[in-house]
Structure formats: C-alpha cells, structure tokens
C-alpha cells in the first residue's frame, strides 16, 4: 500500500513536471522536437516509477514456487517453528532467572542496610507463568539473617513469622519469641522495609535467623 502511495505521488509530480516543461517550450518549428524529447522523459519517469513496483512484486512472487521444493538437508517449517518456540522459552527462562537474581541482590542490599543484621541467604520466588495475571511479580521471599559481626558457628532457629499488629492489640506470641529483642526488632524492620518496597504482605516474607 505504501509503495502504491509512493508511486501515485511520483506520477503526480511527473505530470506536474511535464506540464511545467510544456510551458517552457519555444513557439516555433523546434517545438515538435522538444515536445518529443520531453514526452520521452516523462515516459521514462513513469516507467521508472512503475518498474520499481512491478519488479519488487515479481521478486516477492517468484521465490514462492521455489519454496515448495525443499533443498536437501533443510528443516521443515514445523521443525523451525518448534525450534523457535523452544528458543523463546529458553530465553524467557534465562531472563526470569536473571530477574530473580537481580531481585535477590536488591533485597539483600535492602535488608542489610541497617547494619545490625547480616544477610546470609536470599531466595526469591516469582510468578513465572506467562498466563498468570501476576506474571513477573514476587510470590515469596525467604531470608536467612544473622546478627552482624558474630563469628560462626551458628545455630539455626525456627522460622520467624512476623505479623503486623493492629493498634491496641496485645502482642501475641510467635515463632520468633525466642530471639533477643534487638534481633526481633531487626527482623521486623527488614520485613517492614521489604513489604513497603515491593508491596508484599508480611506472609510473603519468610525470615529465618541464625544465632551463634
């Protein structure tokens, strides 16, 4: 369509050029000869404009019969399509893995910003199915924290579940009850920062603490 549009534009310009050249011609016996040459020029311009389009269309049409004959050793179209889809899936998986790693690095940096905890391990789970409406969002974050500056050996404690308490509600007992108060506070701070930053529910953030 765009080629036809360009062709029509060229033809319009050629016609205007021809009329303009016609006005330029002398009014004598020479006029016939000059008109002949100008007419030839206009025919050349029109043929050049049409010829480019026709030749391109032929080039688009001509290879078609050649496609029906498969050269020896060449793959069939379904195989090529399958290979393409496989390649696409592989690239998507790599992209998701890279995204997951980047998120883990970012979460590790965010959690360790306070300085009083050391992030030992970060695991990020994301919605990795394209059909999922939350595709690409974080499903769950698992953190393994340790008090900063403490030397091994460590003692792994049970997972700590942090609940956001309503004002006036009595603080209930949880899995993190056995932690020292400063560690409990650090866990709550990390959970709050991550929840606010990534718009996550506290239930999506699992924190484990290694105590020496």
């Amino acid at each position: 369509m765009e080629q036809v549009q360009r062709l029509v534009q060229n033809l319009v310009v050629v016609v205007v050029l021809g009329v303009f050249l016609e006005m330029f011609l002398p009014q004598n016996e020479m006029r016939r000869y000059v008109r002949l040459v100008v007419g030839l020029l206009i025919v050349v311009a029109v043929l050049q404009a049409i010829g480019g389009l026709v030749k391109r269309e032929w080039q688009e049409v001509l290879p078609e019969p050649a496609l029906s004959v498969q050269p020896p050793g060449s793959a069939k179209l379904p195989e090529i399509m399958a290979a393409g889809k496989e390649l696409q899936a592989l690239q998507q998986e790599r992209a998701l893995e890279e995204y997951r790693r980047g998120l883990a690095r970012q979460i590790s940096a965010l959690a360790g910003m306070g300085g009083n905890v050391e992030v030992k391990e970060v695991q990020v789970e994301i919605y990795d199915r394209v059909q999922d409406k939350h595709f690409g969002q974080i499903r769950e974050v698992s953190l393994l924290l340790a008090p900063a500056g403490k030397a091994p050996p460590y003692r792994t404690v049970e997972p700590v579940t942090v609940r956001m308490e309503q004002p006036g509600q009595e603080p209930g007992g949880g899995a993190g009850e056995g932690l020292p108060p400063e560690m409990q506070e650090a866990v709550e701070r990390v959970t709050r920062i991550l929840g606010n930053f990534y718009n996550l529910n506290p239930s999506q953030i699992k924190v484990r603490v290694e105590m020496p």
Binding site: Q9, N10, V14, P26, A45, Q48
Partner: peptide
C-alpha cells in the same frame, strides 16, 4: 525532478534541448 526520483542527467538534457531550441 528529484521528488519524482528522476535522474538529474535527464532533466539537464531536457533543459539543454530547450536552450538549443
């Protein structure tokens, strides 16, 4: 002529012909 993708040699030829006439 340039808008019509016409070779400038042809236009120069036509102008020369008009001048000759």
């Amino acid at each position: 002529a340039s808008r019509a993708s016409l070779n400038m040699v042809y236009l120069a030829t036509v102008l020369k012909i008009v001048a000759i006439a």
